[in-house]
Computed example of a mutant assay.
Amino acid sequence: MYLRIVAFLAVLCLTTADTCSKPEVSASAYTTQDATVLTNIAFIAEFHLKCANGVEGVPLYAEINGKTIPAARIGEGNHYQVSWTEDVKKARSGDYSVNLYDDDGYAALRKAARSGDDPSTVKPLVTIVVNYPGAYQGPWVNSEFMAAMLAVLVWYLAFSAKSKLLS
């Protein structure tokens, strides 16, 4: 009988997850800078979450522009990474807000989406900002076009010089 009670309490302790109180986050981000031969822009945000109550390993979910994706834990502790891609033509320069949710927040977010409520009413655990300055998409004029124009110009100058000499 005592063994069952101890086993029940052990399972209860393992299944109850602590929530992060007073979260602080420090983040760094990477975005694709050169899109001359790419079809998608990559966004990568790495961050460290610090909880006032010392909780580690909290499962996190990120919501970016209405899409929800899991945050990957990197190594031990509270280091995480979130990555996503966007089409080059749809990616806008500026700030992207990445709302982070724990299990309870993610459940509330899904419940709001299922019931048709506004998901922005669910308060995120913390929000990080990823700045995307834009990507270089190549020169305005292709080098092939410039080479063809230069060839036409050289031909014209040579033909004009020849005409003047023969006249």
Rank of each mutant, 00 (worst) to 15 (best):
A45Y: 01
A113S: 04
S21R: 09
V130P: 03
E46T: 13
A158W: 13
P133H: 14
G66E: 03
E24R: 01
L109A: 02
Y132A: 11
V58I: 15
Y132T: 11
V152I: 15
P119T: 15
S97C: 00
A45N: 05
K89H: 08
G77L: 09
L12G: 06
N99L: 03
S115P: 00
M149G: 07
S167L: 05
K50E: 14
A42C: 02
E56R: 08
G116K: 05
V129S: 09
E144Y: 11
L157E: 06
I41K: 06
H79W: 07
T15W: 07
A35Y: 12
G138M: 08
T39H: 06
E63Y: 00
A27P: 01
M149L: 14
H48D: 11
F145G: 00
K22P: 00
T39I: 07
N99I: 00
G54L: 10
N40C: 01
A10R: 03
I128C: 03
G116D: 04
Y106G: 00
D34H: 07
C13V: 15
Y106W: 08
L125S: 01
V130G: 12
T32N: 06
P70V: 13
I64E: 01
D87W: 02
K22L: 05
G116E: 06
S26Y: 05
Y80A: 12
